[in-house]
Amino acid sequence: MTAMTTLHSSGELPLKTERDIVLGRQTVRRLSQEQGFSLVDQTKIVTAASELARNALIYGGGGVLIWEVLLDGIKRGLRLTFKDEGPGIPNLELALTDGWTSGHGLGLGLSGARRLVNEFELDSAVGQGTRVTVTRWK
């Protein structure tokens, strides 16, 4: 992010149930459409959101999705933060490896979501929770 980046609008959604994942996807779809994202870019950020929302629910025991529409000169972006207060991730490097999972998934959630966005930030402390922030620019 540069000093030029300003916040246009923001909001927050709960991630407490499986239906919240669907609602999160639909919200991200609508926001990315409003920002004029191409269909492929919409699909990428929606898919990344779905992966990260499910992680927050299943591994983090639930959390929140914070969305922010960003303006940077003529650029428009969508920043999504997934925050939970779950057990945290002991080894961040390992967690970002394809195929690694602590549960029963495919282990593509974090590593795959990272490939679908322009900016990716992972912050986690054992016993305190996990925060993943992703940004996709138009």
Binding site: V40, T43, T47, S111, R115
Partner: peptide, 14 residues
Amino acid sequence: MQPAVAITLVELGL
């Protein structure tokens, strides 16, 4: 499968 979905799936690693 829609093309945008195919592109995203492959990038996701699936």
